[in-house]
Computed example of a mutant assay.
Amino acid sequence: MNGTVIRRLPVLIATGAVLALVAVLVVWWRTTEGAVNASTPGNRSAEAGFARDMAVHHQQAVETSFIVRDRTGDEDVRTLAYDVINTQANQRGMLLGRLEGWGLSKTSAEAPMTWMGHGAAHGAKDGSLMPGMATNTQLDQLRKADGKDAEVLYLRLMTAHHKGGVDMARAAVKEAGDARLKRLAQTMVDGQQAELDLMAAMLARRGAGAER
Rank of each mutant, 00 (worst) to 15 (best):
L96V: 06
L96Q: 04
G97I: 06
G97E: 03
G97F: 07
G97P: 08
G97T: 04
R98P: 00
R98W: 12
R98L: 15
L99I: 11
L99N: 04
L99A: 09
L99V: 13
E100V: 08
E100S: 15
G101Q: 11
G101H: 08
W102R: 00
W102C: 02
G103T: 10
L104K: 05
L104M: 07
L104V: 11
S105G: 14
S105L: 14
K106C: 08
T107G: 12
T107L: 13
T107Q: 14
T107K: 11
T107H: 12
S108V: 10
A109L: 13
A109N: 12
A109M: 11
A109Y: 05
E110C: 05
E110A: 13
E110I: 06
A111W: 00
A111C: 02
A111D: 04
A111S: 11
A111F: 00
P112M: 03
P112G: 03
M113W: 03
M113A: 08
M113G: 01
T114E: 05
T114D: 04
W115S: 01
M116C: 08
M116G: 02
G117A: 06
G117P: 03
G119M: 06
A120F: 00
A121P: 00
H122F: 15
G123Q: 03
G123V: 04
A124E: 09
A124G: 12
A124R: 01
A124M: 02
A124L: 07
K125W: 06
K125G: 02
K125R: 15
D126V: 09
D126A: 13
D126N: 14
G127R: 00
G127W: 03
G127Y: 01
S128A: 15
M130S: 05
P131Q: 09
G132R: 00
G132Y: 00
M133D: 02
M133S: 03
M133R: 01
M133T: 01
M133P: 05
A134P: 14
A134E: 08
T135P: 05
T135L: 11
N136H: 14
N136E: 15
T137A: 15
T137V: 15
Q138D: 15
Q138S: 10
Q138A: 15
L139W: 09
L139Y: 12
L139M: 15
L139V: 14
D140M: 08
D140H: 10
D140F: 09
D140S: 13
Q141P: 06
L142P: 04
L142A: 11
R143E: 15
R143C: 13
R143L: 14
R143Q: 10
R143P: 11
